[in-house]
């Protein structure tokens, strides 16, 4: 499945409109940064796509993520770099077993209307992105052509009569921990509603991403979590990264298109810096959870943002 996404829709959360946006925000931003686009420029999110594109004009594109390799004719196109593609080129996507989501950016951002302050597709209500739906055969997409000064320089330096790209690339991996199977979590507000043994099992055994997993959330298969406090919980805000424990003791990890409120107790919140790892998980993948403090999660968040800020400047400096 392929949909248009950006960094999400925040201004209507109070009306129960979900955040949506790219599942793997890090990869989506890197695809944009490689072109000196703004981070919020619309990108295409591929989930295990075997799609094919024809360039109807010369194009400056880039892609990042995990799960797909782009090729054009005999060229394997490298990820994390601006790629100059000639009109008429056929771009093929081939699945790789490592991840599940890849992002394709175009210089100036993909041109779809902004709905409620975002270009992200929200399939359940059928709005955002391209006509509120996933991309299908024969769709035509174009760039919004809002090129930054830096993007114009990249285009000028790469433009020519053949496929062209610079010698450097931005590796998504360099921002992520080496151990991609351990997800760091912070205690949720109802953490102490669960029995101590269940918690210790939760933090020491593996869980498997269930088959029933999509942009709204993942079912986590593994040891059930027992509750000691049986209170009814009044619905309140939840968000991507929240792990809820359902009535049967199984767990659901909420993802980009999740509801804005929920009534199941929240055992933990996944650290925002590890959400890109979660976004790349496939049904059947197994993961572990490791507890970190609230303060540590916040520091990791700010450090990641600082690194990404530096990256923007670094790309600009390549094309001075």
């Amino acid at each position: 499945m392929s949909t248009i996404q950006d960094m999400g829709r925040y201004q209507y959360l109070s009306q129960a409109v979900p955040i949506s946006g790219a599942m793997d925000r890090l990869s989506a931003r890197i695809a944009n940064k490689a072109l000196s686009n703004g981070d919020n420029a619309a990108v295409i999110e591929f989930t295990y796509a075997d799609a094919e594109f024809i360039a109807e004009t010369d194009l400056l594109i880039s892609y990042a993520g995990d799960g797909v390799i782009l090729t054009s004719g005999e060229h394997q196109l490298p990820a994390g770099r601006p790629l100059f593609i000639l009109s008429g080129a056929i771009i093929k996507l081939t699945n790789t077993p490592s991840g599940s989501r890849t992002y394709l950016a175009v210089a100036g951002g993909w041109d779809v209307p902004e709905i409620l302050g975002s270009k992200s597709t929200y399939l359940a209500a059928g709005f955002g992105g391209l006509d509120g739906r996933a991309l299908k055969r024969a769709d035509i997409l174009k760039s919004e052509q809002r090129l930054t000064e830096s993007t114009k320089k990249i285009l000028k330096s790469l433009r020519g009569d053949k496929v062209n790209y610079p010698g450097w690339s931005i590796a998504v991996q360099s921002f992520l921990p080496v151990d991609r199977k351990t997800i760091r979590v912070v205690r949720g507000n109802e953490f102490d509603w669960f029995d101590a043994r269940s918690i210790s099992v939760f933090l020491s055994t593996s869980y498997i991403v269930g088959r029933q997993s999509n942009r709204m959330g993942y079912h986590l298969e593994g040891a059930m979590i027992a509750r000691t406090k049986k209170n009814e919980l009044l619905s309140s805000a939840v968000m991507p990264g929240t792990i809820q424990v359902t009535g049967s003791g199984s767990m659901v990890l909420l993802m980009a298109d999740c509801q804005t409120t929920g009534g199941y107790p929240r055992i933990v919140q996944v650290a925002a810096v590890d959400m890109p790892l979660c976004a790349q998980l496939k049904p059947g993948d197994s993961i572990f959870f490791k507890e970190i403090s609230q303060r540590e999660a916040e520091m990791l968040y700010i450090e990641r943002e600082q690194e990404l800020q530096q990256l923007t400047i670094a790309v600009q400096s390549k094309f001075l």
Partner: peptide, 13 residues
Amino acid sequence: YLSEVAVTVEFGQ
């Protein structure tokens, strides 16, 4: 704390 980007004010249950 809800997450790095949100806190919840609870007035009662």
